[in-house]
Structure formats: C-alpha cells, structure tokens
C-alpha cells in the first residue's frame, strides 16, 4: 500500500493496514529483478542471434534484418500463448517477458483467444487491443510530441 494513499484513510484503517502489512509476504523485489534481467536478456540475445542469422543466410542487411527478427519473435510468442505456456513463463520471468516485443504479442493474442467465445467482431475484434490499446495510444502520442519538439529544435537551428 503506497504511503500517499494513507491520507485518505481514517485512523482505524491506517492502523489495520500496518497490522496487515506485517503479516503479508513482500514481493521478492531483488530476485524478481534478477529473473527479469536474465529472462529479458535471454530473449534479446535470442533476437540478436536471429538478426545475425537473417543477415548471414537470408541476405538481409543490417538495416532491414530487424523486420523478420521481430516477426519471428512475435510468431513464437503467439504460439507459446496459444499453447498456454507463456503465462507460466511470465510468472517466473515477470518484466523480463513483458517488456520485449514478445510481451506485446502476448497481450494481443491472449485477449483474442479469451474473447473468441463472444464472436469475431465484438469478441476478438473488440477486445484484442484491450491491454495493448493504451500502449499504442500513448506510444503514438508521445512519439508525436517528441517529433514536434525535435522539429522545433531543428527549425531554431538545431543542436
């Protein structure tokens, strides 16, 4: 419970929450960070290997090998989600499996699978971006703001 929330609570509630907090196991922050570092790093190393493979064997260049690499990672992530493995991995990996592109693919595919029972339009179509939607909205918006700033800086003579 964040301390800034406490000012809305009355004394009895505050007392209870500190009473309860003493009996709650804490999130294992350090080991979670370590696991996220290992698993997230492993995904990135695997991606890098794919990148090299596409350059070496499929005559992609340094500039465009990123596209098939991302596509391969997405396909693997979607398959693991469909087979019901990704959420098990994520319980161990935490942010390590959520932050790379595989996590983004998991949010969309898991929502699509979940809402299949409500039909293709209202179910799959309507809910597919339930978790990924906000990321896209604020991602695009912040890219827009940053590009305006960059444009202004360039216009004024640049750095």
């Amino acid at each position: 419970m964040a301390s800034n929330k406490n000012n809305k609570l009355n004394l009895e509630q505050q007392k209870y929450q500190s009473f309860a907090q003493k009996r709650e196991p804490r999130r294992p922050l350090l080991s979670n960070c370590l696991k996220a570092f290992i698993s997230g790093g492993a995904i990135c190393v695997f991606g890098q290997l794919l990148h090299f493979m596409y350059i070496k064997y499929f005559s992609f260049t340094e500039n465009n090998a990123g596209d098939p690499t991302a596509a391969t990672l997405i396909i693997i992530s979607v398959l693991l989600t469909g087979f019901g493995v990704y959420d098990t991995i994520a319980q161990w990996a935490g942010a390590g499996s959520a932050v790379p592109i595989t996590g983004f693919a998991n949010t969309i595919s898991s929502a699509a699978i979940e809402h299949r029972s409500e039909g293709y339009v209202l179910g799959v179509g309507g809910n597919m971006f339930k978790i990924a939607g906000p990321v896209i909205v604020y991602g695009v918006f912040s890219a827009f703001v940053v590009s305006i700033i960059k444009m202004l800086v360039n216009y004024m003579g640049g750095i």
């Binding site: 709650e24 196991p25 804490r26 999130r27 294992p28 979670n32 989600t81 469909g82 019901g84 990704y86 959420d87 991995i89 994520a90 319980q91 990996a93 935490g94 942010a95 499996s97 959520a98 996590g103 998991n106 949010t107 595919s109 898991s110 929502a111 699978i113 979940e114 809402h115 339930k130 978790i131």
Partner: peptide
C-alpha cells in the same frame, strides 16, 4: 480471471498475496 483481472493466457506476474 477473465471478468475481474486479465485474459487467462496473459503473462502478468502475480504477487505472493
């Protein structure tokens, strides 16, 4: 899970509580 939290296959890490 579907109604109260996230899709079942979504990889969210759950706390020990």
């Amino acid at each position: 899970e579907k109604q109260f939290r996230y899709p079942n296959e979504y990889g969210a890490q759950k706390p020990p509580t």
